[in-house]
Deep mutational scan, measured.
Amino acid sequence: QEVDTIELTRQVKEKLAKNGICQRIFGEKVLGLSQGSVSDMLSRPKPWSKLTQKGREPFIRMQLWLNG
């Protein structure tokens, strides 16, 4: 299904801030990505339709983390 990447990243940033989790830790533990990649993804999320399967994976992980 289509994911609203802008809304998703907004919710993730909100939860990170609320729980005092830094992007570096979130990136390493949840997404398996560097802090730079995570920062870029959270500040400039690409539309779901423009992402490859590999590009979608971190957003799917974010969704699971939010719902977890």
Rank of each mutant, 00 (worst) to 15 (best):
Q1I: 10
Q1W: 05
Q1G: 14
Q1N: 02
Q1V: 06
Q1F: 10
Q1C: 11
E2P: 06
E2R: 07
E2M: 10
E2H: 03
E2T: 10
V3T: 09
V3R: 11
V3K: 08
V3A: 08
D4N: 10
D4V: 01
D4E: 10
D4L: 01
D4T: 05
D4C: 05
D4K: 09
T5K: 09
T5Q: 10
T5C: 05
I6M: 14
I6W: 03
I6R: 11
I6Y: 09
L8V: 14
L8R: 13
L8K: 14
L8I: 15
L8A: 14
T9C: 10
T9H: 08
T9I: 09
T9V: 14
T9Q: 05
T9N: 03
R10E: 11
R10Q: 08
R10M: 14
R10S: 09
R10W: 01
Q11N: 05
Q11T: 08
Q11V: 04
Q11A: 09
Q11H: 09
Q11M: 14
V12N: 04
V12A: 07
V12L: 03
V12K: 07
K13Y: 02
K13T: 08
K13A: 03
K13E: 06
K13D: 04
K13G: 02
E14R: 11
E14K: 09
E14P: 13
E14Q: 08
E14A: 11
E14V: 06
E14D: 09
K15Q: 09
K15M: 08
K15I: 10
K15P: 11
L16W: 06
L16G: 12
L16H: 13
L16M: 15
A17Y: 06
A17C: 08
A17S: 08
A17K: 14
K18C: 04
K18E: 13
K18W: 04
K18Y: 01
K18F: 04
K18V: 07
K18L: 07
N19M: 14
N19F: 15
N19Y: 03
N19E: 15
N19I: 15
N19L: 15
N19S: 14
N19P: 14
G20W: 04
G20T: 10
G20H: 05
G20D: 04
G20I: 03
G20Q: 15
I21C: 02
I21Y: 14
I21N: 04
I21A: 02
I21T: 06
I21P: 03
I21V: 08
C22T: 14
Q23I: 01
Q23M: 06
Q23G: 04
Q23L: 12
Q23F: 04
Q23E: 11
Q23D: 02
Q23R: 12
R24P: 01
R24W: 08
R24S: 08
R24T: 04
R24Q: 10
R24N: 13
R24F: 03
I25A: 13
I25V: 13
F26P: 01
F26E: 00
G27Y: 08
G27V: 05
G27A: 15
E28M: 08
E28L: 09
E28W: 10
E28R: 12
E28H: 06
E28V: 06
K29F: 01
K29D: 06
K29Y: 02
K29N: 15
K29M: 05
K29W: 04
K29S: 09
V30P: 15
V30W: 09
V30A: 05
L31K: 05
L31D: 02
L31T: 02
L31C: 05
L31H: 03
L31M: 06
G32D: 03
G32E: 02
G32Y: 02
G32M: 05
L33R: 06
L33C: 06
S34M: 12
S34E: 13
S34K: 14
S34G: 08
S34R: 14
S34F: 13
Q35E: 15
Q35G: 13
Q35K: 12
Q35Y: 13
Q35M: 12
G36R: 14
G36S: 12
G36E: 15
G36H: 15
G36Q: 14
G36I: 11
G36F: 12
G36L: 12
S37Q: 15
S37P: 07
S37R: 10
S37V: 12
V38C: 10
V38R: 06
V38F: 14
V38G: 04
V38L: 12
V38I: 12
S39A: 13
S39M: 13
S39H: 11
S39L: 10
S39W: 04
S39E: 14
S39G: 14
D40N: 08
D40Y: 06
D40H: 09
D40I: 03
D40G: 10
D40C: 06
M41V: 13
M41H: 04
L42I: 07
L42M: 06
S43L: 08
S43E: 13
S43N: 15
R44A: 13
R44L: 08
R44C: 13
R44E: 07
R44T: 13
P45L: 06
P45F: 07
P45C: 09
P45H: 09
P45R: 07
P45M: 04
P45A: 05
P45G: 03
K46G: 03
K46W: 04
K46H: 07
K46D: 07
P47S: 10
P47G: 09
P47E: 11
W48K: 00
W48M: 01
W48D: 00
W48T: 00
W48R: 01
W48Y: 00
S49D: 05
S49L: 05
K50V: 11
K50T: 11
K50H: 07
K50N: 05
L51V: 02
L51T: 01
L51S: 00
L51Q: 00
L51A: 01
T52I: 13
T52S: 15
T52Y: 08
T52L: 12
Q53T: 13
Q53R: 11
Q53W: 07
K54P: 02
K54E: 15
K54T: 10
K54Y: 02
K54V: 03
G55C: 07
G55I: 15
G55D: 15
G55W: 07
R56G: 01
R56S: 01
R56D: 00
E57T: 08
E57P: 01
E57F: 04
E57N: 11
E57D: 07
E57S: 06
E57R: 05
P58H: 08
P58W: 13
P58D: 09
P58K: 12
F59T: 01
F59N: 00
I60H: 09
I60N: 11
I60Y: 13
R61T: 09
R61M: 04
R61V: 02
R61P: 00
R61N: 12
R61Y: 03
M62A: 08
M62R: 00
M62C: 05
M62N: 00
Q63N: 03
Q63W: 12
Q63R: 13
Q63A: 04
L64F: 03
L64M: 11
L64C: 07
L64Y: 13
L64P: 01
L64E: 15
L64Q: 15
W65D: 00
W65R: 00
W65G: 00
W65I: 00
L66E: 00
L66I: 07
N67F: 02
N67C: 06
N67G: 12
N67E: 15
N67H: 09
G68Y: 02
G68S: 05
G68W: 01
G68T: 02
G68N: 10
